[in-house]
Amino acid sequence: MNVDMDTDDWLGCPTPLEMYQHQCALLEDELIQTESMLRKARANVAGLVQMNDLLATEKASAEMALKEALDRISAMSNETSDNQSFRPVDLITQQRDHLFTENQRLLMELKVLRGPLP
Rank of each mutant, 00 (worst) to 15 (best):
M1E: 00
N2C: 01
D4I: 02
D4P: 00
M5N: 01
M5F: 03
D6P: 00
T7K: 05
D8N: 05
W10D: 01
W10P: 00
W10N: 01
G12V: 00
C13L: 10
P14W: 00
T15W: 00
L17Q: 08
E18I: 02
M19A: 10
Q21N: 10
Q21P: 00
Q21G: 02
Q21W: 02
H22Y: 03
Q23T: 06
Q23S: 10
C24S: 09
L26Y: 02
D29N: 05
D29S: 07
I32E: 05
I32C: 08
Q33W: 04
T34S: 13
T34M: 12
T34I: 08
S36K: 15
S36E: 10
S36T: 11
M37R: 15
M37P: 04
M37W: 12
M37V: 11
K40P: 01
A43H: 10
V45E: 12
A46M: 11
G47T: 06
G47C: 06
L48K: 15
L48D: 07
L48S: 13
V49E: 12
V49I: 11
D53Q: 15
D53M: 15
D53Y: 10
D53S: 15
L54R: 15
L55A: 13
L55Y: 07
A56L: 09
T57H: 15
T57R: 14
T57P: 03
K59T: 02
K59P: 01
K59D: 00
A62R: 11
E63R: 14
A65I: 04
L66N: 09
L66I: 09
E68R: 15
A69S: 13
A69I: 05
D71V: 11
R72I: 04
S74T: 06
A75T: 09
M76R: 14
S77L: 09
S77C: 06
T80W: 05
D82R: 14
D82M: 10
N83G: 11
F86T: 08
P88E: 03
D90H: 13
L91N: 10
I92T: 07
I92Q: 08
Q94H: 12
Q95N: 08
R96N: 06
L99G: 04
L99F: 07
T101S: 04
N103D: 02
N103E: 01
N103V: 01
Q104L: 11
R105W: 02
L107K: 12
E109V: 06
L110G: 06
K111I: 01
K111E: 02
L113D: 08
L113Q: 12
L113F: 09
R114L: 12
P116T: 05
P118K: 06
